[in-house]
Amino acid sequence: MPELPEVETTRRGIAPHVEQRRVTALEVRQPRLRWPVPDQLPQWVVGDRVISIERRAKYLLFKFARGTLIVHLGMSGSLRILPCGASIGKHDHVDMQLDSGQLMRLTDPRRFGAVLWQENGTLHPLLASLGPEPLSEAFDAEYLQRCCRGRRTAIKALIMNADVVVGVGNIYANEALHNAGIDPRRAAGRISAARLERLVAAIKRVLAAAIEQGGTTLRDFVGGDGKPGYFKQELHVYGRAGEPCHQCGEILSEVKLGQRSTVFCRQCQR
């Protein structure tokens, strides 16, 4: 599943081609995605200009004068920029044609993505309960301490909860907890303030590094497959169960937490 850095890289990749362009047509070939694509969507966006593209958690927000087009890539979705008239594949579900002669295409083999609409002055239910962005000032040690207080939930599950903080997916939760030296199984309410401060810094550091490394993939959004993939960074724990820890040489352990693979070092993470 695309995680926050992949979605942010997608935003940066398509923004120069879409922002300030007028929509000349919207073709919905498959309206049955995770939620139905609104029937009225073409009449809401055709003829209007895309003011900007923003990101909230893993949602891409295309701002128009009368509202916001919300796009989620689901498990396997991608966006790419192609010339109008480009051949259509089996899983190419939505095309937004632009006055530049290009189009933005949503491809989603598993159809777990979404294309939705939010009128100005309203907040879509999917966005209403989201926690702060992990790279924002609102996500700090004091905030995380409040969220952890009295909680028996494993710290990894808590930081992956979008009501607490958005966008810390499985890969980056594994990496940040190793970076901070915290056992992912430890109860959130039993972690000291100083260690939570290290965890906040680690989350910000790991995500910022992944986004920065995503810059090298931007060319793939024009004429390519539109998929940034997982960045070619050195992952210290994720996907390395049974291999030695880069830090101490201890063999990395793997457990299931919330049905997600969790890899950690029993020596470095307490």
Rank of each mutant, 00 (worst) to 15 (best):
P2L: 09
E3I: 03
E8K: 03
T9V: 14
T10V: 14
G13T: 11
H17G: 09
V23E: 09
A25Y: 08
E27C: 14
P31E: 10
P31W: 00
R32N: 13
L33W: 02
R34M: 07
P36Y: 03
L41R: 02
Q43M: 11
V46G: 07
V50Y: 08
I53K: 02
I53G: 03
F64W: 05
G67C: 04
T68G: 05
L73D: 11
G74Y: 00
S78N: 10
L79W: 00
L79F: 01
R80N: 14
L82K: 08
C84V: 13
A86P: 06
D92H: 13
D92V: 09
V94P: 14
L98S: 04
D99A: 05
D99C: 10
S100I: 02
P109T: 05
R110C: 13
G113I: 06
V115E: 01
V115I: 12
L116F: 01
Q118R: 00
Q118W: 00
G121Y: 04
L123P: 00
L126A: 04
S129N: 09
G131V: 08
G131C: 05
P132A: 11
E137W: 01
A138L: 10
A141S: 12
E142T: 15
C147A: 15
T153W: 01
A157N: 04
L158I: 12
I159G: 07
A162G: 15
D163H: 13
G167R: 04
I171C: 02
Y172S: 03
A173G: 09
N174I: 07
A176L: 06
H178I: 06
H178K: 05
A180V: 05
G181Q: 12
G181Y: 08
G181W: 07
R185G: 09
A187K: 12
G189H: 12
G189C: 15
E197I: 04
R198W: 01
V200M: 10
A202D: 14
R205I: 10
V206K: 01
L207E: 10
G215Q: 15
T216G: 12
G224F: 08
G224D: 13
K227C: 14
Y230S: 13
Y230M: 09
Y230K: 12
F231I: 07
V237E: 01
E243W: 05
E243R: 14
C245Y: 13
Q247S: 13
L252I: 04
L252H: 08
L252R: 08
G258Y: 00
S261W: 10
T262C: 09
C265L: 05
R266L: 13
